[in-house]
Design a protein around this nucleic acid. Sequence first.
DNA 1: CGGTTAATTGAACGCATTCAACACGAGTGG
DNA 2: CCACTCGTGTTGAATGCGTTCAATTAACCG
Lengths: 213, 213
Amino acid sequence: MTTSYQPETVESVDLASVLDGLGAKVRFARDEEIYAQDDEVTRLYRVVRGVVRTSRITVEGRRQIGDFYYQGDVFGLEPGPLHLFAAEALTDCEVIAVKRSAVETAVGPAVFNAAVLQATRRELARLQEHLLVLGRKAAVARVASFLIGIAGKTPGDDGELPMGRQDMADYLGLTIETVSRSLTQLQGDAVVEFPSTRRFQVRKWQALEDLVA
Amino acid sequence: MTTSYQPETVESVDLASVLDGLGAKVRFARDEEIYAQDDEVTRLYRVVRGVVRTSRITVEGRRQIGDFYYQGDVFGLEPGPLHLFAAEALTDCEVIAVKRSAVETAVGPAVFNAAVLQATRRELARLQEHLLVLGRKAAVARVASFLIGIAGKTPGDDGELPMGRQDMADYLGLTIETVSRSLTQLQGDAVVEFPSTRRFQVRKWQALEDLVA
DNA sequence: CGGTTAATTGAACGCATTCAACACGAGTGG
DNA sequence: CCACTCGTGTTGAATGCGTTCAATTAACCG
């Protein structure tokens, strides 16, 4: 058993389920810091409830948002010994935080590595997607792809934005005004509809996806 | 030995050195394709000589360059089963290509996972850095940070650009003209000097880094 | 209700893009 | 050696899009 070759078994371990068994839930209030930029990377986190954002402030005061993490997502994975991005509670939320070493001793190094690898892969996929959005020029296209992502999280045509316009702007590399104008334009074209500022409904999926293409 | 807990040992495995022992060197001519977009992810690659670029074409014909890989770099790591980015030989080059399964059977799943994880982390670090460059607006700042990266690869103040202006533009999310203008501006301010189109020398490191900050 | 923050809208500006022309270098053949 | 071409890079001028600054409106909460 110890010598048999079982790559599939090791590969299929899910970090999320591993974390659930360990560590206690911690609550964070809106805008509270979970870990800071340049903090040491010691823990792994999982969102139990609410939404978390990672962000980085450049010297010139500009802010870049790394990503938003929703229920079930694992975050806190970074390549180096220090956090390049800080993590804050976007909404009031609850997260499970476990020391990496604790996870490792609990499940063993092989399983730990496999699980971290899988989670890191997902992280890589997020970044690749984000990269393309930022590389693409048109503001409306960026906003459109963002809305698609949000709407895709829930079944049906409607989506809910847990973050404000400023967060959207910093995520998309735009200003708050441009985001607002893009949204207005999409509404004017009847592609999406906003009953309130944070809730929307997709009216023309095709048109929305054509913008991103 | 099989049951003892040795995280450090497993962690420290380097994928690059593992690859060297396996697989044969393959030559690719300039602009030749190493693997295509949407190809299955089956192999791991290492650059022995020359430079490789990864790129992705959007439906609207726009091209985004993922990264450039130099001598010693490992590439071909992608989160999903398919390659989102294609890989091409930027210059005539030589790469080692090994089937992932071959690597895994050679060193065992634990070491394989550890090694792939480490390489994936590096990949993640590259992307995070790239993300910040694209999120930052100013064209000159993007070009400056690119030049710093290139110049940092070789000791001393001079650097060599293996890629053309179009590749730089697609990497930085700019047009070829804007890249050219930014370079001219940097030369005009005597921050860098270009004896030829592909070779440069940094004159004022401080000024260059201030632009990026 | 006011009081505060967030979001939208307007107008002017600036920077990157676009389209176009020109310069440069390398390679080819007269 | 010159003329020619082709690919690549630079430069110019005009446009357009996103930004910036400012004012207005909407949403939230006591």
